[in-house]
Design a protein around this nucleic acid. Structure first.
Lengths: 182, 182
DNA sequence: TTGACATATATCAAGTCGATACGTATATAC
DNA sequence: GTATATACGTATCGACTTGATATATGTCAA
């Protein structure tokens, strides 16, 4: 039901095509909500239409690919707000990187370094994107939400920068005196 | 493929039943790896067995429910380490709460307060569980990983405590002078 | 003019999620 | 004593998600 709320949330702000909704997922103030793909969004929009929560208008511009522009209805707005008014489920946070760090002693030191580099670069990118969007945004709830994201990403990046050498050390020591598993 | 790596990771450390693997998911040092349920774990174990990466021994103790105890094979250990040696995908972080905060101005101030309370309580619980496990753990890689989790959870909790009043204010102001959507 | 990239809709196989069914054992409450 | 709840344990099901791919058109640069 998360793709559902996400689609309604986007359409609550402005009309959009499925393609646009997809692009908004995981970006800006929606950075920490969902990363739904086409396979979730298109079926979801069809369902919302059949329930009368959104309407669709097809646009056949000459020399352009046809578009389906979705709009939220009043019933849709009401349903969205009602569905938000249930205590939200807790966050899901999954980190393949932390599985790597957990087994650092069995892995190659070079590999660990590369994995940390990639993660640092990713965190920095995400952070600068968020910071840029936060400054040019005037809605206070969006600001609050983005600053939350910035705060946790910053903490994550700082931990990584301060403590990466310790993890690299674990991998280096283990490879110099390899141990039996278990 | 994440349930797969998770199952191998657990079995890399010690033998376990499907039920035990399920309980370990989302707890302790595996807190940020996955939260796989039975519906993922049991099929995954069958598949791993058919690939020869794990073996199973059935235990029919008298007056006890039958158990299937899974063990990782040498091929399994090798496969696990090899599969870890690919650059890990980036984290997925999804927060239904942040969708609520994003639309705070359309929601009830009381509801916002309750949602924040629940989140604070959840973060505090998760943190104290992690801290307890981190102190009684001697593996340096596990320590590093759990401290990473503690750091980000702490940042999250602190932001919430410091800035919750601002979000509550947004909801309160909006309900006193309700505005049209859009 | 070929190739890369952006726009746009849509589907598919494989896997995941959350609930539920089924069954035994043990402890707690009435 | 006998319900009632909780823990252990295996397993499946429908609905949904994931990630890749198919299909088209348009644009821009080498």
């Amino acid at each position: 039901m998360s793709t559902r709320k996400f689609c309604l949330a986007v359409l609550f702000c402005h009309d959009a095509t499925g393609y646009e909704i997809r692009r908004i997922a995981g970006e800006g103030r929606f950075a920490f909500i969902t990363e739904a793909g086409y396979g979730s969004i298109y079926p979801c929009l069809s369902k919302l239409e059949s329930e009368g929560l959104v309407t669709v208008s097809e646009e056949f511009a000459p020399s352009k690919p046809p578009k389906k522009i979705y709009s939220i209805t009043n019933i849709g707005k009401e349903a969205f707000v009602n569905e938000l008014m249930e205590l939200p489920a807790h966050d899901t946070f999954r980190s393949p990187f932390l599985l790597v760090s957990l087994f650092a002693q069995y892995l190659d030191a070079d590999f660990i370094a590369r994995a940390i580099d990639a993660r640092e670069a990713y965190l920095r990118d995400k952070l600068s994107e968020l910071r840029a969007q936060a400054t040019e945004c005037c809605n206070p709830a969006s600001q609050w939400t983005m600053e939350y994201g910035i705060t946790t990403l910053t903490a994550s990046l700082e931990y990584l920068q301060k403590h990466r050498s310790r993890l690299e050390e674990i991998a280096r020591e283990a490879s110099s005196q390899p141990q039996a598993a278990e």
